[in-house]
């Protein structure tokens, strides 16, 4: 099911400000691509441009091509809402809907899209998504409790389950562990390992060890200078980037002498 995403010559603007310039990158299917780089280098903007979430911010736009499965995400007749159903996203801070129970949170994507389900169907979707997100065993006895009653790490996995229930091809993760404790972080990382069997995963992280642990490919973003747009410096297989990067800036960043 998972699809490859090809990005070529992508520029991202907020109003007249150019945030990211000239990115060309391929994110392979059934693998994890990590985006690393200093704060403000545009890696989150880049991630959000992959499912057109950046359009939620007024004035944001892109130039260039993002191609998945032979079709451009930014083609004229493409509906951004439908793009987001194919390319799910998990955020930095867990954001379960506070008015909904655990089960309703998982079903939110389906329900809010107006899909009618009978009880059995709904139960099956809930169980499948929660099992996929490694959360089923912890919550199966309290599916009717509010989603906000879970711990931070559980909430984040609930958000992943919520994204999976929509049956996406790709999962984008924007620093999914930065608000979590080490134990919850390990749980999410284990989950990423399992999920990459079935999905294309792109993850933004500030944690170098995490990038090294979970990703197959790493892409390093950097700023050309203060007030200048962010660039993709280099990308490649994770072992290579972390051992023998081509660009000295990459090595400086990874070894902690920079950023």
């Amino acid at each position: 099911m998972a699809k490859t995403i090809d990005v070529s010559d992508l520029d991202i603007y907020y109003g007249s400000f150019k945030a990211v310039e000239d990115v060309t990158l391929t994110m392979a299917s059934r693998s994890v691509t990590a985006l690393i780089g200093p704060s403000g280098c545009g890696k989150s903007s880049f991630l959000r441009s992959l499912n057109r979430m950046h359009e939620v911010i007024p004035g944001a736009r892109v130039e260039g091509k993002v191609i998945m499965d032979g079709r451009g995400l930014y083609d004229v007749d493409v509906d951004p809402v439908l793009v987001r159903r194919d390319i799910g996203m998990v955020f930095q801070r867990p954001n379960p809907f506070p008015t909904m129970s655990i089960a309703d949170n998982v079903l939110a994507g389906k329900r809010l899209n107006g899909k009618r389900m009978n009880r059995a169907e709904a139960a099956e979707i809930v169980e499948r998504a929660l099992v996929s997100a490694n959360l089923w065993n912890e919550v199966k006895d309290r599916l009717r409790k509010p989603g906000a009653s879970l711990s931070g790490g559980q909430q984040q996995r609930l958000c992943i389950a919520r994204a999976l229930a929509v049956e996406p091809q790709v999962l984008l993760m924007d620093e999914p562990c930065s608000a979590l404790d080490p134990i919850s972080t390990t749980a999410i990382e284990d989950l990423i390992h399992t999920l990459k069997e079935r999905y294309t995963i792109v993850i933004v992280t500030h944690n170098m060890q995490q990038a090294a642990r979970v990703s197959d490919t790493t892409a390093f973003f950097n700023l050309a200078g203060a007030g200048r747009p962010g660039h993709l410096i280099e990308s490649g297989s994770t072992p290579k980037i972390f051992s023998t990067p081509d660009n000295p800036a990459t090595e400086a960043y990874i070894s902690g002498r920079f950023g």
């Binding site: 079709r71 995400l73 007749d77 493409v78 509906d79 951004p80 809402v81 439908l82 793009v83 159903r85």
Partner: peptide, 19 residues
Amino acid sequence: MWSTGTATQQTSQTGRRTV
């Protein structure tokens, strides 16, 4: 798929929702 023009499984719903 996400295009509004092509005939996919969601065409009828899509048409209504974009309105």
